[in-house]
Lab assay of single mutants.
Amino acid sequence: KTRWTREEDEKLKKLVEQNGTDDWKVIANYLPNRTDVQCQHRWQKVL
C-alpha cells in the first residue's frame, strides 16, 4: 500500500470532474497502481 501523491490527487480531481462518480473503474484506468475502490475511498474520505 503506497501513499497517494499530490499528482495522483490532482489527477483524481480532474478525472472526477470529467467523468463523475458513477464508474470508478473508468477513473482507475487512468491511475496506474490504484483500484476503483481505492479511488472511490480517496475521493469520499480524503478529498
Rank of each mutant, 00 (worst) to 15 (best):
W43L: 04
R34W: 12
W4D: 00
V37C: 05
D36A: 12
R6E: 07
C39Y: 01
E8T: 02
Y30M: 13
D23G: 04
W24C: 02
K13D: 02
R42K: 03
N29P: 04
V16P: 02
Q38K: 03
E17N: 14
D23A: 11
R3M: 15
T21H: 06
W43R: 02
K45S: 11
R6F: 13
T5L: 07
T21D: 12
Q44P: 06
R42L: 02
V46W: 11
L31V: 08
K25L: 10
Q40W: 09
Q40C: 14
A28R: 03
Q38N: 15
K14S: 12
E10W: 07
E8Q: 04
W24T: 00
Q38D: 15
R3C: 15
E10I: 03
T21G: 08
T2S: 15
W24M: 02
D36V: 09
W4H: 00
T5K: 12
V16L: 04
R34M: 11
I27P: 02
V16H: 01
D23Y: 04
Q44L: 14
E8C: 00
E8W: 00
Y30K: 15
E7D: 09
L31H: 03
R34V: 02
Q18M: 07
D22A: 10
R34F: 07
N29G: 14
P32F: 07
T21A: 10
N29T: 14
R6P: 13
Q38C: 14
H41L: 13
I27W: 01
L47R: 15
A28Q: 06
L31C: 02
K25I: 09
K14C: 09
V26W: 10
E10S: 14
V16W: 01
V46T: 08
R6T: 14
V37Y: 14
V46S: 10
W43G: 05
T5F: 11
D9C: 00
V46P: 05
R42G: 02
K14R: 12
L12V: 01
R3S: 14
K14V: 09
I27M: 04
P32Y: 05
H41Q: 14
T2R: 06
D9N: 05
W24V: 00
K13G: 09
N29Q: 11
N29M: 05
C39W: 02
E7A: 11
P32Q: 09
K13V: 09
P32S: 10
W24Y: 03
K25M: 10
Y30I: 07
V46K: 07
I27A: 02
E17Q: 05
Y30N: 15
L47A: 04
Q40Y: 08
T5Y: 04
H41R: 12
G20T: 05
L31K: 00
K14W: 05
K11N: 07
Y30P: 04
R3I: 11
Q38W: 03
W43H: 07
L31W: 05
K25H: 11
Q40M: 14
K25V: 14
T5M: 02
Q44Y: 06
L15Y: 08
D23R: 10
R3A: 06
Q40L: 08
E7T: 10
K45Y: 13
K45V: 06
Q40D: 09
K11T: 05
P32E: 15
D22K: 11
L15F: 09
N19G: 08
T5C: 06
K1N: 12
Q38G: 07
K13Q: 02
E17T: 11
W43P: 03
I27F: 03
L12F: 15
T35W: 05
T2L: 06
V37K: 12
V46H: 14
K11Y: 13
N33S: 13
H41K: 14
N29A: 08
E8D: 11
L31T: 03
K25R: 12
D23V: 06
N19C: 15
L31N: 02
D22N: 15
